[in-house]
Design a protein around this nucleic acid. Structure first.
Lengths: 285, 285
DNA sequence: GGTTGTGAACATATTCACAGCA
DNA sequence: TGCTGTGAATATGTTCACAACC
């Protein structure tokens, strides 16, 4: 997901696996909570539970950072907080700009957790001249014209894009040209960026679609029955809803049919052996 | 990340890898764009570029769905849109509730891409009585008291939590008890949910922390020099900034020091051989 | 010729299970 | 005794490279 690498084989320096890096913030959050409750030490088991992972994974993860625990005892909470913060680069204070102050941009600007952990909103930038000067989250919105100046003057290296999809690529190019090397993209577009620039994306509708996939699976789990091919609108819905009579977890969904298959081509598919719209088929090959 | 499984070994039914599922929405988006431009067919190479992946991966992904392409030609855009939509469960219309109508919740309610792809916001729910009845995104906010009723009456199986962290666990329990089996969690907490319930989380500050990690790496890339052990405050900052003189990509960041190491324990670490704050050490073991 | 679909090779990530140490 | 740290085993994911096919 994160790009960057390729860049050069690099000195193979301190190879912390990407999957581990992605979990460090989770551990850090759990540790911070313990720290606030003045808990002095914690075992891998306890911490893992608090972070929502299993203890073997957590220990492996920590082993990449060094030997920070004490056998028979556990980990010193304060000390671990510091080590992980440092590893993540949070002992520095990172100025961040948010570009695109619509609903989402404003919500991000107001988001407290933003500032709390080493990040500081240096500026809010929007292309709408009517927005310029308006205060959002206690900070005046600045116009896109000044983007480069703002980036340079504040030494910003991390930019957040919350613009409409159409503007995102261009905004990213301006950010990068001005010196930004990490981008958090909320716009539903694939950004193409040069090597050495990291992009992470957050996409609401992608997350929902992944959930829908699993949700659909649950509905079809015991359902080899029901679901007549195309025409089923609310008929299909009630069929789905009635599949799991009352098996403990939940009532089951009752979605109505929406998209139809493109005419004519369905037949072609049947020929080829791909799974078709009706029966929850098994793996074709 | 997504939970669910364990559930039972399941019939091993139609095993589409999780990584593939996570990319299907990306392909779908790219295909939808092509469809709107009335492009009839597309090669794996073109589509992969549009989706931001490589073509081998895309073909492998599609191979789990079936044989939907034509050798020497490519993929029929409309047909693929339909197949992927169906696979993701988007040929159904999923009613969704958003709980917690603060800045973020309101932004989500207003987010267009929400409705566009098979999802329909069935209700907005908030615990604040003052919010009740107020229109957000053209829809009246309802009170938490009615949560169960709303879920059941609308057959909602997907819930979005945009409450403060403190309320999230309790909200998730109520959602689940009422029949929700998939949750998209924007609150910065680990939700603990029963088997069979899927949770996906979106956490702004985690994403930023991951970026900060890589950002820090870039800064220290060529920097075997500078950075004197502990005491460095703004001195360390300027050292970091001056590391990469002007090496093509970007201006380099200029973050100021923030968190300090917890006194006394740093020495203990040095003993044990873990990497300490100064030199970008190599892998300890 | 051109492009898909896929085994086989490789890379990364997770889990197991236990030696090593406080 | 109790818990960490880690090799070895397994599982999952990616990339290569080419046969099959249009």
């Amino acid at each position: 997901m994160a790009t960057g690498r390729t860049h050069r084989p690099a000195t193979r320096s301190r190879g912390i696996p990407e999957a581990t890096v992605a979990r460090l913030p989770l551990y850090l959050r759990a540790l911070t909570a313990l720290s606030e409750r003045s808990v002095p030490t914690v075992s891998s088991e306890e911490l893992a539970t608090a972070a929502g992972v299993n203890s073997a994974k957590l220990r492996k993860d920590f082993s990449y950072l060094g030997s920070y625990g004490t056998r028979g005892v556990g980990y010193d909470v304060e000390y671990l907080v510091y080590q992980i913060s440092r590893e993540l680069g949070l002992t520095q204070d990172w100025p961040v700009v948010i570009v695109g102050i619509g609903n989402l941009g404003a919500a991000l600007a107001n988001y407290g957790g933003f500032a709390s952990r080493g990040f500081r909103v240096a500026a809010l930038i929007d292309a709408d001249p009517a927005m310029a000067g308006k205060p959002v989250a206690g900070m005046p919105v600045q116009h896109t014209d000044d983007l480069e100046k703002i980036i340079e003057e504040n030494g910003v290296s991390i930019g957040v894009i919350a613009t409409p999809a159409g503007a995102a690529q261009q905004v990213s190019e301006r950010l990068i040209a001005a010196g930004v090397t990490s981008i958090l993209n909320f716009a539903p577009t694939v950004l193409s960026v040069p090597d050495g620039v990291d992009v992470r994306k957050v996409d609401l509708s992608i997350e929902l679609q992944i959930l829908a996939f699993h949700e659909q699976r649950k509905a079809g789990e015991e359902a080899a029955a029901a679901a007549s091919s195309s025409s089923g609108s609310s008929a299909a819905a009630s069929a789905v809803a009635s599949v799991e009579p009352a098996a403990g977890t939940g009532t089951g969904a009752a979605p109505a049919a929406a998209v139809e298959p493109p005419a004519g081509r369905a037949a072609a598919a049947a020929r080829k052996g791909g799974p078709e719209g009706d029966v929850p088929a098994v793996m074709p090959a």
